[in-house]
């Protein structure tokens, strides 16, 4: 299970993407999101794909790893594709079964949707793959700073996000432990039929949720006993430094996004 969970993990490497300022990367991600949403034609999507491929390939992390990061979302992608295929009625009719019709337009839109999703997941993985959690935290706090104006504390939100990310592997570990205990007591996940597998996974829900709450409570107490006060003015051990390459990186994305909006 540990080996398969690659989404959202930092991968140490030396590359220009690793060196970038997290604020630049976060802003670029938002721009990228807008660009992907605005791209309607295969040519536009192809341009974005080429653009992101260049960045992914120079990030010092094997492409396969990005592919694996999208794996948990494959069922969702398949569902999206089916949805378009079955419920879009425009275009040439290729096949019709009962009230469902498969049309050229439907298949095309379905493919676009999957393409977009893949682009988004693979490309946004670059953020967590090339940025350490600490950097990410600092970057988020800086990017969310404007929210202070409307009375939302960026510090609280970044702390929440950081903790949530930090506990993903822990919760998986906990679930794994219960699966092992169940296997020892005669219900081996790998030996079971699909229906029984589903039942077994449902039994994990309660203990894992209870465990998460218990953990959260313990964490709060541990933080408070070490003097953590919400929204207290904090100093930072690390500072972010904005460099020329960061500006350049953002500019690239602004050009890309503007291009997609105009076209």
């Amino acid at each position: 299970m540990d080996e398969r969970m690659v989404m959202g993990r930092y991968v140490a490497a030396q590359s220009w993407v690793h060196q970038l300022d997290p604020r630049a990367k976060l802003t670029a991600m938002v721009l990228f999101l807008i660009a992907v949403i605005c791209a309607d034609y295969s040519l536009e999507l192809a341009v974005i794909t080429a653009f992101s491929l260049v960045i992914l390939m120079t990030s010092g992390i094997p492409l396969r790893r990005y592919g694996r990061a999208s794996k948990p979302l494959w069922p969702l992608m398949a569902f999206m594709f089916l949805f378009y295929v079955l419920f879009e009625h425009n275009g040439d009719v290729w096949l019709s079964i009962g009230s469902f019709t498969v049309t050229s337009e439907g298949v095309l839109l379905g493919l676009y949707a999957v393409w977009r999703m893949l682009l988004l997941v693979c490309f946004t993985s670059i953020l967590t793959f090339t940025t350490t959690p600490i950097e990410l935290n600092l970057g988020l706090e800086a990017v969310l700073k404007p929210l202070k104006l409307i009375g939302v504390s960026p510090q609280q939100w970044t702390m929440m996000i950081t903790i949530a990310l930090r506990f993903i592997p822990t919760i998986f570990e906990e679930a794994n432990k219960i699966l092992k205990a169940q296997a020892s007591r005669g219900a081996d996940y790998e030996d079971l039929k699909l229906k029984e597998k589903g039942k077994l996974v449902v039994t994990l829900l309660v203990p894992v949720t209870v465990g998460a709450f218990r953990r959260a409570e313990e964490l709060v107490m541990a933080m408070e006993s070490r003097g953590y006060v919400l929204d207290a003015k904090r100093t930072s051990l690390r500072y972010l430094t904005w460099q020329g390459t960061d500006t350049l990186f953002i500019l690239l994305f602004i050009v890309l996004t503007a291009g997609m909006i105009i076209l």
Partner: peptide, 13 residues
């Protein structure tokens, strides 16, 4: 029969 470490984390019913 195997009792794992931290057995309190293995109850699920």
């Amino acid at each position: 029969g195997l009792v794992f470490q931290f057995p309190e984390q293995q109850l699920f019913e």
